[in-house]
């Protein structure tokens, strides 16, 4: 098998992994900080894609959709936290899980009512149509953009969490919310913001995935399963875990597709099973957190 094919395959895997990273990231942040398993994460991804498409057609530009949809859906996520999820803090982990599970059905049906259950086209922005000659082969320009975009979001997120005062509060809040309250920090507002951020990341993933897949009300369900697999492999609640595991899963799928394409979907679950057997807490579990 020649080297250029392997390089191309690796690149496909990274692009695939980039979307997995961005979706798993939102899921893992919300779990890590709030202890909420957000089953509506896939639905948020889906409404993100619809919002992006709608805003792009309204403004005539993909870029406005890409910018505004995560903000809009993130704000919607904050509303959900404020009205519904907030009431369930301190209860068993199943309560918010069931709530968000039900919510995902409501959102999917809502989109079916508003936009119909058929897929709708999400055109690739004109600047990013076509392929780039990488010397070893041709690769879609849009997928390269997705890799760059996800990398940029990761850097921003890292800067925010590690270098700012807000980041410090967020990290401390994840460790010990009671002490934070004693110190006079309004932890409720932090959680509101974190939930909004998690949902905004899901929506961003949806907008980014839109031009690669057909946009339809069920597009989130598969994504939710993938995001869960990635977070379990990386360690529930771990941000570096989500990044490494997302790329690992993307590249594994791609490499397996090269030798045994019909196994491409299963490899992700095989990887998860292996991690659970050898290192049940995931590759990068946050220490000191009671799961």
């Amino acid at each position: 098998m020649d080297l250029s094919l392997i390089i191309m395959q690796l690149l496909s895997g990274i692009a695939l992994g980039a979307v997995l990273v961005i979706t798993a990231l939102g899921l893992t942040i919300v779990f890590g900080m709030l202890g909420v398993v957000n089953f509506a994460h896939g639905a948020m991804f889906m409404i993100g894609a619809y919002a992006g498409l709608y805003l792009a057609s309204l403004t005539g530009s993909f870029w406005w959709g890409l910018l505004l949809a995560p903000i809009l859906i993130g704000a919607f996520g904050m509303l959900i936290e404020f009205v519904l999820i907030r009431r369930l803090y301190g209860r068993s982990i199943d309560d918010p899980l069931l709530l968000t599970f039900g919510l995902s059905y409501v959102l999917v049906e809502g989109v079916r009512i508003l936009f119909g259950s058929d897929g709708i086209p999400f055109p690739t922005p004109s600047q990013l149509i076509g392929v780039v000659d990488l010397g070893v082969g041709f690769f879609p320009r849009y997928r390269i953009f997705v890799i760059v975009m996800v990398a940029a979001v990761l850097v921003l997120l890292w800067l925010m969490l590690e270098k700012t005062r807000i980041g410090l509060i967020v990290r401390a809040g994840a460790r010990d919310p009671v002490i934070m309250q004693v110190l006079g920090v309004d932890i409720g507002r932090v959680w509101l913001a974190i939930f909004g951020l998690g949902v905004a990341l899901a929506a961003l993933g949806g907008v980014l995935a839109g031009p690669m897949r057909s946009v339809n009300p069920e597009m989130g369900s598969l994504v939710l399963a993938e995001a869960f697999v990635v977070t379990v492999i990386g360690g529930l609640g771990s941000i570096p875990g989500a990044v490494v595991a997302g790329l690992l899963v993307g590249i594994s799928i791609s490499m397996v597709a090269l030798v045994a394409p019909e196994m491409a979907t299963i490899v992700m679950f095989a990887l998860m099973a292996a991690v659970l057997l050898i290192r049940p807490q995931g590759l990068f579990n946050v220490r000191g957190r009671v799961a």
Binding site: D2, L5, M8, Q9, L16, M212, R213, A257, L258, P261
Partner: peptide, 12 residues
């Protein structure tokens, strides 16, 4: 949902 991983080989 994703077919990108099959494309390089198909093209080769």
């Amino acid at each position: 949902a994703d077919y990108s991983t099959f494309m390089p080989r198909l093209m080769s």
